[in-house]
Simulated scan of single mutants.
Amino acid sequence: MRIVTFFAPLFIGLLACSQTPKMAIVSEINHSKQNENTIMSTNTIYDFKVKDLAGAEFDFTSLKGKKIMIVNTASECGLTPQYEQLQTVYETYKDENFVIVGFPANNFGAQEPGTNEQIATFCKKNYGVTFPMMAKISVKGNDMHPIYQFLTQKVKNGLQDSEVQWNFQKYLIDENGHLVKVISPRTLPNDAEIINWIEGK
């Protein structure tokens, strides 16, 4: 009887110890899932404010309800003539809840060396650009602008990781501010894939 009395508390203590790690593991798993959900909770394009070519603040919340094409541009690139198609597409669909936003960048072959003022003059004079053009930024590397971190990182955009391959890569944003498609630099702005998306086909 004494032996039973002596070992009973010991057995209960061991049983309690054996249960604790299981509970801790379950708690840790649940916590891990919560962290994963937090990490994967995506931003929208509406979280960003930037400067335009004139230095004024541009708030992406002003574009709520519109489909948006974001494109990194350059003035001295073999793809620079895409400005012409960009402007045509913008003029065609600007009254149908669609907008293009350009971000000049000098990340590729130093093909956008000018100042914001020079870029504005170039775009207007050569291609009659009237869609919103933002101040020059970096779209890759250690100094990548936060808006391009959103566009290129799945943990921020919820869709996919990507890398800006060259000037005139396109990012398509839906009416709710979410990234829905990444388009190659060499795909023209008036390509059927883009037009069908704009038209909701």
Rank of each mutant, 00 (worst) to 15 (best):
V4P: 00
F6S: 04
A8Y: 08
A8H: 02
L10V: 15
L10G: 03
F11N: 05
F11T: 15
I12Y: 11
L15N: 12
C17R: 07
C17Y: 11
Q19I: 14
Q19G: 13
P21H: 07
S27A: 14
I29W: 13
H31R: 15
S32W: 08
Q34I: 11
Q34K: 15
N37C: 00
N37T: 02
T38I: 15
M40I: 02
M40P: 00
S41K: 12
N43F: 11
T44F: 04
I45W: 01
D47M: 07
V50T: 07
K51P: 03
L53P: 00
A54T: 15
A56N: 15
A56V: 04
F60N: 01
S62M: 02
L63Y: 10
K64R: 14
K64T: 10
M69F: 08
I70H: 04
E76M: 10
C77H: 07
G78A: 09
T80Q: 06
T80P: 06
L86R: 01
Q87R: 03
V89W: 02
V89Y: 02
E91N: 15
E91S: 12
Y93L: 05
E96I: 03
N97C: 04
V99P: 00
V99I: 12
V99H: 00
V99C: 01
I100V: 14
V101P: 01
G102A: 14
F103Y: 07
P104S: 09
N107Q: 09
G109W: 09
G109I: 09
A110N: 15
E112A: 12
T115G: 14
T115Y: 12
T115D: 09
N116L: 10
I119L: 06
I119Q: 00
A120E: 14
N126S: 15
Y127M: 06
V129I: 15
M134P: 02
A135H: 01
K136H: 02
I137R: 02
S138F: 01
G141E: 03
D143A: 13
H145I: 07
I147K: 02
Y148M: 06
F150L: 06
Q153W: 01
K156Y: 12
D161T: 13
S162H: 09
E163Y: 07
Q165N: 13
F168H: 06
Q169L: 12
K170I: 10
D174F: 04
D174A: 11
E175W: 08
N176W: 04
L179Q: 08
L179A: 07
L179T: 03
K181R: 14
V182C: 13
V182Q: 10
V182A: 11
I183T: 07
S184L: 11
P185I: 09
T187M: 13
T187P: 00
L188F: 06
P189K: 01
D191K: 03
D191S: 15
I194H: 05
I195G: 04
W197S: 07
I198A: 08
G200K: 10
K201E: 12
K201C: 05
